[in-house]
Design a protein around this nucleic acid. Structure first.
Lengths: 225, 225
DNA sequence: TTTTCATAATGAGTTTAACTCATATATACA
DNA sequence: TGTATATATGAGTTAAACTCATTATGAAAA
């Protein structure tokens, strides 16, 4: 029994591996089912015994990638206990990964934007969920430890974090400057640091406090003359 | 002669209008050339006299949208002279537009991720260029006026700005909460403000140093009476 | 007004590639 | 070894983008 199931899973895996190489080489639209079949050394019809259609195959390829990536990112985090350092490590890992595996990320978007009604169960972005959850957990831990402010909006921060990094990845790829990854990370952290530690409002408070205190003192001095 | 050219342009326009409605209703993949032809009241073959292929038609639809959008955004900016207010207005306009016209934005991505070699001249993201340039100009003006710090990285800021807003738009659409647009804008501005005006950690340090020094001086004066 | 010519429109026909299904082969089990 | 069940095959079907030989249109010449 275990042999049978193992055999099936092995063949599924083989299709996914073949599909990835073909998709990466040609992109979704130009990748032909016949090529995938050839690469996997199977007949074209056999593919349809394992996956409903072409979309289902990319979905498997992309899901596989995000799952792998989640494991790696999790390990990258455990290198430090400090929440800021963890955040920086996640940002660094994420941006590096995006630049390196951009073609796979793209496949995910093709899937997402194809609006295939067959999608049914999951719409094709679910893999990202567990991955994105790493960020949420990190922030919440930081809040529990008192490193991060309590009044942060998690959804907004998540959008800021991943949105910025994705656009940064696109820019880096467009200008072919993978060496600028570090620069981007430093800047992102500079933007986030004061916000996360709640300095902004606190800072504004001290500013007005300084001003009021100064005004009082000056008025007193003027009266004394 | 002007009549002839006008007639051709009018027909191009008619195709684009028909195509937009069909694409918006069904999405790129499920939109059929035959439907577009029907809607435009033309034969299918006629479409190909005006546009090379399906991709060329979406490209026209998307280009049309970004051009329109650029005009509107520019007008939204001219309401204020203050750089921070202009930035906020742009963010607000952009996010509102993204949420409202998400389907058109999506069409742009389908085009972008299709990797059609026929793309030739422009890769399909060029429309965005002039639009994104509004942001660059705004920042540079702010720097000239001394409102914004000089040592900002424009590419990074641009990625942060548009990346965050796009992800925020996705989140708003996903949870169907268009009323949260304002909340997102306020938060983005809170993050950007200190960074743009150059209030780095060093700044915060000097602030508290000033406060302490001032407190000492004032106490001394008060003791003197 | 009629003829001519160039330009534009048409839709039946071609092509391509995803997907199906009747048939063939392998595998497990008695 | 024989039979039943599961798995694999690839020729055949289908759908939709795109082509092209034919037809319509409309402006200028006769």
């Amino acid at each position: 029994m275990s042999t049978k199931r193992a055999k099936l899973e092995q063949r599924e895996k083989r299709i996914v591996v073949a599909a990835r190489s073909v998709f990466l080489k040609h992109g979704f639209n130009k990748a032909k089912m016949s090529q995938i079949a050839d690469t996997a050394e199977l007949a074209e019809g056999t593919l349809y015994l394992y996956y409903k259609n072409k979309n289902a195959i990319v979905k498997a390829v992309v899901a596989d990638h995000w799952q792998h990536i989640t494991g790696e990112a999790d390990r990258a985090l455990s290198a430090s206990e400090n929440s800021f350092e963890q955040l920086q490590a996640l940002a660094e890992y994420h941006l590096t990964m995006m630049v390196k595996h951009w073609r796979v990320i793209e496949l995910g978007y093709v899937l997402y934007y194809s609006h295939s009604d067959d999608a049914g169960e999951n719409s094709g972005v679910d893999f990202k969920r567990t991955y994105a959850a790493l960020f949420d957990r990190l922030i919440e831990r930081g809040q529990d430890k008192g490193t991060f402010a309590k009044d942060l909006s998690l959804p907004f921060l998540r959008d800021l974090f991943y949105g910025t990094l994705e656009y940064a990845a696109r820019t880096l790829i467009l200008h072919n400057k993978p060496e600028d990854i570090e620069v981007n990370i430093v800047q992102l952290m500079n933007v986030l640091r004061p916000h996360l530690s709640g300095e902004t409002t606190a800072q504004a408070d001290t500013d007005t406090a300084v001003l009021k205190r100064l005004e009082r003192a000056v008025r007193k001095l003027e009266r004394l003359r």
